[in-house]
Computed example of a mutant assay.
Amino acid sequence: ADDPLLTDRTGRARRRPLLRVILDSRLRLPLASRMVKTAQNDVLVLCAFAEEKKKRDLEARGIRVTQIALTSASAARPFSDKVRRMPVRRRTGTGKPILDGDSSSASDGRPDLRKVIAALGELEITSLLIEGGALVNWAALAAGIVDKIFFYYAPRILGGADAIPFASGAGFHSMAEAAQVHRLAIHHFGSDFAVEGYLRDPYEQTASGPQELGAVRER
């Protein structure tokens, strides 16, 4: 099974340690995982459901746990700049979710990524690396929080009816709505290569660059 560390291997000097962030909807992070064993107050778990005992066990090991409101169907409109401001009903520590707005709204049971970004912003995290699966990738695109993409490719073809797409979800309904990638660049790593591009300029409305880099991992 995948048991990542999400540690920085660049060797670059940092003003402060990078924050390792995990999207864990139901707080299933194993206490025996390498992430928990190596935590030094540099791991943040964002969840929708938080069972009190598991939360205490993680916090006792130096893991920060924060509940985030669920994604509602109305909040999943691709590239919309409108953020609904509605009352939040919180039931932390009960194993029940935080419900944002109308409790009858459809939800996929996962934390709302716009609220994830807002929570990280409160921690003065202004640059974020998302390493997710197909569901998280689509959720990030649909929430309009992606500025830059970096796709890695190996010169091999698998295919198959059960092949997992890069982004799995409702998808864009037409080419006109599709996410347009600009300023493309190709990077070579031996026989492998990567495609770098921008959906928008992250520095367009700010004079200063990002302060820190976080890594979000889906569980």
Rank of each mutant, 00 (worst) to 15 (best):
F79M: 06
I22H: 00
P30D: 05
L70R: 09
L29W: 00
A76W: 01
P78K: 14
S33F: 10
L58Y: 02
T71A: 12
A73C: 14
L27P: 01
L58A: 03
R77Y: 08
K53Y: 08
S80R: 13
A60H: 07
D24H: 05
R91P: 10
K54S: 06
T38C: 11
I68Y: 09
A73Q: 12
R90C: 03
G93P: 10
A48H: 08
T66W: 01
V83M: 11
I68N: 08
R28K: 13
I63G: 02
E51P: 01
M35P: 06
V88M: 07
V36L: 10
A50L: 04
I63C: 15
P30R: 05
F79R: 14
K53Q: 08
R84F: 09
G62M: 13
L29V: 10
S80D: 14
P78D: 05
A48S: 15
R56C: 12
I22A: 05
T66S: 05
C47P: 02
A39M: 05
E59L: 08
R89I: 01
A75K: 14
M35D: 00
P30E: 07
T38G: 04
R84T: 07
A60E: 13
R61S: 11
F79E: 04
N41D: 11
R56W: 01
V88K: 14
L23R: 02
V45R: 01
L44F: 11
R91K: 12
A60G: 06
S33A: 05
K37G: 08
T92Q: 07
G93N: 10
L70A: 09
Q67R: 02
S74F: 07
E59Y: 00
R77F: 03
M35S: 02
C47A: 08
A73R: 15
N41E: 11
G62I: 10
S74A: 13
I22M: 09
Q67D: 10
K53E: 08
L23E: 12
M86L: 15
I68C: 13
S25Q: 13
T71M: 14
K53R: 15
A75W: 04
A48P: 12
R84H: 11
R34H: 13
S74E: 08
L70H: 12
L29N: 07
P30S: 02
L46M: 14
L46Q: 04
R28H: 05
K37A: 15
R77C: 08
A32Y: 01
I68M: 15
M35I: 15
S80P: 12
A75D: 01
R85L: 05
K82Y: 03
